[in-house]
Amino acid sequence: MMRRDDDAIISLVSRTVSPFIMIFALYVIFHGHYSPGGGFQGGTMLAAALILVRLAAGSDLAQLQFPRSWGTPLGSAGVLIYWGTGFVSMLCGGNFLNYAFLPVSGPPPHHRNLGILFIEVGVGLAVMGILTAIYDDLLEGRPHD
């Protein structure tokens, strides 16, 4: 952000909390079938954890954790996972996004369950990558340099 004073407490707390937010975010993504939550919430929390470190340690130091150039590619990959799940079911004879045609074993409800999991992961990746990228872009070209 602007000028930053290195505060030991802020740095310590944010670095300690950030991994726990990430773990909880992963839980939210993968447990979305059974409880409130899902890809979008989890992805936003992952982005929040990354942004927290960026806020506390400064954008330059946080590059070690999550480089600036990863945001957009990861986000694109997330959308591609979503689209790919739909497209594979299209190639296997169903309509677009018809998970019952996914080439996995088991009865159709199981296919759909798995399909939902795939796209939740895609959504999570996409949201995490792109929100972080937006944050980085907003900070690009700081006034003082």
Binding site: H33, Y34, S35, F96, P109, R112, I116
Partner: peptide, 20 residues
Amino acid sequence: AATPNMVTVILADYRGFDTM
């Protein structure tokens, strides 16, 4: 879809195209 959370199923399956 063998999933108890209705919102997830609607979001990802019944109206999955919206989510895309």
